[in-house]
């Protein structure tokens, strides 16, 4: 459904992505792991054209696109069929919770207001915030803000949702509420790519784990394969570092 081929991206002389291939099928929950600076964020941003890749092919459903020479129509098509959940939420601070969620429906997709509000409320119910409709982002905890971010993403019914470390900016006690919502979405069959270091999440819901390092996909497989039987030395090293008292890698 979503396919990336040979994605390259440099910032100045700094080659960040060095030919990444990823394939996502409908219903896939893909977790991307990798050390900080390995290009995970850049990869997700390139999918959504928040960064313009230097090279690469993106296929979404039947539409093939050159990621470097993309037309405005390509960009708009991809953005209307994907959604991004940001590490630091990035809610619209001048909009209420409800407006944050209806914006993409009413303004970008021309959904009639009444219908948009209904859709938004049902999305907000899924994240447990239907009683906060008229609040502003500044009045909410980080966990709630990220839940609004998730509602904003699911309301537009995207083909795939891109999560970039959705819990890493949260206080530890707020991680659980956000993670359990994403888990539930995953179990309901939402297609998603999640960059995260939450291993239990990956083990629980991912059907594919991709380990990235230095701008390339080093290894990919089921969570069991990656966590219990990693083949590559770099993967082993990484897992050892993030799981110091490891009961995964033997």
């Amino acid at each position: 459904m979503l396919k990336l081929e040979d994605v390259h991206k440099a910032f100045g002389k700094n080659q960040i992505l060095k030919g990444v291939d990823i394939e996502v099928n409908k219903g896939d929950v893909i977790v991307i792991l990798g050390p900080s600076g390995s290009g995970k964020t850049t990869l997700l941003r390139s999918i959504n054209f928040l960064e313009k890749a230097d090279k690469g092919k993106l296929t979404l459903d039947d539409r093939e696109m050159d990621m470097h020479h993309s037309s405005r129509k390509d960009i708009s098509y991809v953005r209307k069929n994907t959604a991004f959940v940001f590490q630091n939420y990035c809610l619209f601070n001048n909009k209420t919770v409800l407006q944050n969620v209806t914006e993409g429906l009413i303004v970008a997709r021309k959904v009639p207001k009444k219908e948009a509000v209904e859709t938004a409320i049902s999305a907000l119910k899924k994240v447990g915030l239907e009683d906060k409709l008229d609040m502003y982002p500044a009045q909410l905890s980080g966990g709630m803000q990220q839940r609004v971010g998730i509602a904003r993403a699911i309301a537009v019914n995207p083909k795939v949702i891109l999560f970039d470390e959705p819990t890493s900016a949260l206080d530890p006690e707020l991680v659980g509420e956000v993670l359990s919502i994403i888990k539930r979405l995953a179990k309901e069959g939402t297609t998603m790519i999640v960059v995260t270091h939450e291993m239990s999440f990956a083990e629980d819901v991912a059907n594919k784990v991709i380990f990235m390092s230095d701008g390339v996909v080093v290894e990919q497989g089921s969570p069991k394969e990656i966590f219990y039987k990693p083949k590559e030395e770099r993967t082993k090293q990484f897992l050892k570092r993030i799981l110091p008292v490891s009961d995964y890698v033997i």
Partner: peptide, 17 residues
């Protein structure tokens, strides 16, 4: 912050919107 702008375009609004 730039993130709000990016969130806007990523949800499908045009740059001008």
């Amino acid at each position: 912050d730039k993130g709000q702008y990016e969130a806007g375009v990523s949800i499908g609004l045009t740059e001008i919107q």
